[in-house]
Design a protein around this nucleic acid. Structure first.
Lengths: 329, 329
DNA sequence: TTGTACGCGTTATCAA
DNA sequence: TTGATAACGCGTACAA
C-alpha cells in the first residue's frame, strides 16, 4: 500500500499534523524535527496524494490545454514551447485532443486551475467559471476571457515594408485567398494596405490549400505574371517551403534573382533548404505570453482583454536587394 | 459554490447516501426516488467531484498518454485515433508532451489508471507499478510491459509481393537507409528478403531524411538507375508524397508508367495528389489495439508480451500492371 | 513547538 | 428500500 503521512508520523514519533506542516515547509515546526520527518518520508518513499490535497485545497496547480486539431506542425511547435514555459512555474500542463466540450468536462473533473484553448473555429467558447485563455480566435471578442494572438496583418505589412526598403517594387503574396478563414484574410489585408500605402501594384496569388505543394504549384503562376516580381511573401511555413522547393528546381537563385520571406516565426525556418527570412511572433514569445496570461488570470483574477502580439522580422539568407536588371526606379 | 450530493439530499428530502446510490445507478434504490434525485441533480447543475471519488475508489478511469515528440503527422493521426477509441470505453485520455519522466510524475500525481508511452528512443521505460503499454519501441522487450507495434518488415514484403504479382520485376525502395533507426532498418530488411525470395534485383535508394523533399529528390536517382524500375515503394507518407510530386512534375503518368506504393496506412493516403496504394497497419486498428491492451492490462493485470500487428495492403489508384514495353518476361 | 479534531465530497458497510 | 456512519489522505484552526 501507499505511504501516508500517518505512517510517517508513527515512524517519526510525532503527530501527523506535524508531519503535514513539515512537508509543507511550515515555519511552525522546529528545524530538527522537520529534518527528521523529511528524512523518514524520503526513506519510506512517500508520495503525496493529490486527490486528498485537492479535496481540501481546491487547487491542483495543473492547467489543461485543449487542442482539438493536432496535425499542424506550427501549432505543435507552439505546444512544445508552452509546455517548456510552464517548467519554470509551479504549474504543470496536461493536454486533451478531444472536442472542446468533451475536453472541458475532463478538465473540470480534474479541477485544473485553468485552461488554454486552441480554438478551431470562430465559435464562442463556453466559459465555465474556470479561468480560460484562448489562442487564435481572431475576430470579435465576445467572451469574457482574454484572447492571445499574433497581429497577422501587421506582420505582413512589416514584410512588405522590409522588402520595399531593399528596393523591391514588385512583391507577390502567395497564400490562401478567397476564404472565410479570418486568419488568412488578415494577412491579405496587411498585404493590400501596405501595397496601397507604398503605391505598389498588388500581385496576389491564391493557393488551393495550406500545404507545401500548394505553395509549390503557385510558383508557376507567380512566374507567369505580366510583370515578374522580384520578391515573394509566403503565407505560411508550409507554403513557403513549397515555394522554396519550386524556385530551387527552376534554378532561380535566392536571393539574387528572387527574395522570399515567409510568415510564421518558428525555428524550422532556419533549417529550411535555404534559411528563410520570416515575420511573425516568435513561438517562444507567444508561448510565454500565453502562459503568463493564464497564470495571472488564475492568481489575480484579471479580466484581460484581447492581446495582439507584435510580430518580429527575423532576417536570414532568403532575402536581399533587388538585382540591377530589375530595378524600376 | 459547488453543488455536492449533500445539497441534493436536502433538496430532495433524502439522505445523501441515497443520493450517492441513485447517482451511481444502484439497483438498491427505488426507481421513483432515483428519477427524482436525478432530476434534482440535473436542475442544480451537479458536477461530481473526481478528487473525492478518487480518494475512496482509488481509480480515476483516466489514462495518460506520453508523447514527447509531437511534430510528426503520422503520430498525430494515431493520437487522434486513440482518443477516439477511448470514447467508446469508460476511460478518457489526457496527454503530456513533457519528457517521459516528468510526464510520469504528473500522471502519478493524478493517479491515472494507466499510461501509454510513445517512446522516442530505445531507452527502457521506468515502470512505476502503474500499468503501461509502449508503442513503437522496436527491439528487445526487456521491460515487463507490452509493446505494440506494426510489423514493418512484413509490410514491405507484402508490398513487394503485391507489385510482383502485378508483373513488376524492377521495384525500387526509397527510404532512409544507413541509419541506426531500427524502424527504418526493419523496412529495408523486408525489402531485401522479399527481393531475394522472388529473385529480383534490388534497387534501393537512400534519402537524407524523412521529409517530403527527401523523397522528392530521390526520384532523380531512381530514374537514373541502369535498369529503370517500373514501381517504387516509398518508405513513409512524407517520402511518398515527395516522390509523387516529382513524378507528376516529370510528366510520368501513374500508374501507367510508374506504380507507387507507400508505407504507412493512414487516411491521408486517399487524399494525396493521386490516391496512393499503401501498406501498413491501419491507424484505427493500431489505435484500437493499443487501447484494448492498456484496458485489459488495467482490468485483469495481464502481462502481455510484445505484439507485432499484421499490416494490410490498401489498393488505390497509384498502382497497376506493368506497361507492355517494360515487360521483362 | 506540538498535538487534537474537524472538514473536504465521495463510496461503502451496516443497521434500520 | 433507505439512512447513519466510517473511511479515504490531507490541511488547518485551535487547544495544549
Amino acid at each position: 500500500m501507499h505511504v501516508t503521512i500517518k505512517d510517517i508520523a508513527k515512524e517519526a514519533n510525532v503527530s501527523y499534523s506535524t508531519v503535514s506542516k513539515a512537508l509543507n515547509n511550515s515555519p511552525l515546526v522546529k528545524e530538527g524535527t522537520k529534518q527528521k520527518i523529511l528524512r523518514v518520508a524520503e526513506n519510506m518513499g512517500y508520495e503525496p496524494n493529490l486527490a486528498a490535497k485537492q479535496l481540501v485545497r481546491k487547487k491542483t496547480e495543473v492547467i489543461g490545454l485543449i487542442w482539438p486539431t493536432i496535425e499542424r506542425v506550427v501549432l505543435a511547435t507552439l505546444v512544445t514551447n508552452i509546455s517548456k514555459a510552464f517548467e519554470s512555474s509551479r504549474y504543470s500542463m496536461i493536454l486533451s485532443v478531444d472536442p472542446i466540450e468533451m475536453a472541458m468536462d475532463t478538465f473540470k473533473k480534474f479541477q485544473v486551475d485553468g485552461t488554454i484553448v486552441f480554438a478551431e473555429s470562430e465559435n464562442r467558447i463556453p466559459e465555465d467559471n474556470i479561468p480560460l485563455v484562448a489562442y487564435g480566435v481572431s475576430g470579435k471578442n465576445e467572451g469574457t476571457y482574454p484572447i492571445i494572438d499574433a497581429n497577422h496583418e501587421q506582420a505582413i505589412q512589416k514584410a512588405v515594408h522590409y522588402l520595399y526598403d531593399l528596393g523591391h517594387r514588385d512583391i507577390a503574396y502567395v497564400g490562401l485567398l478567397h476564404t472565410t478563414d479570418s486568419l488568412q484574410n488578415e494577412k491579405i489585408e496587411g498585404y493590400q494596405k501596405a501595397s496601397r500605402k507604398l503605391g505598389l501594384t498588388e500581385h496576389s496569388i491564391t493557393t488551393n490549400g495550406l500545404d507545401w505543394f500548394d505553395g509549390y504549384l503557385a510558383v508557376n503562376d507567380v512566374l507567369s505574371l505580366a510583370k515578374r516580381p522580384t520578391a515573394i511573401i509566403g503565407g505560411s511555413y508550409d507554403i513557403s517551403s513549397g515555394i522554396l522547393r519550386a524556385l530551387h528546381e527552376k534554378g532561380i537563385s535566392i536571393p539574387e534573382e528572387m527574395s522570399l520571406i515567409s510568415y510564421d516565426n518558428i525555428p524550422q525556418m532556419a533549417t529550411a533548404e535555404t534559411p528563410l527570412t520570416c515575420v511573425g511572433v516568435p513561438v517562444d514569445q507567444l508561448a510565454e505570453e500565453i502562459v503568463n496570461t493564464i497564470i495571472q488570470r488564475i492568481e489575480s483574477d484579471d479580466t484581460n482583454v484581447a492581446k495582439k502580439l507584435k510580430p518580429t522580422l527575423t532576417e536570414r539568407e532568403s532575402t536581399g536587394t533587388v538585382p540591377p536588371q530589375h530595378r524600376s526606379n
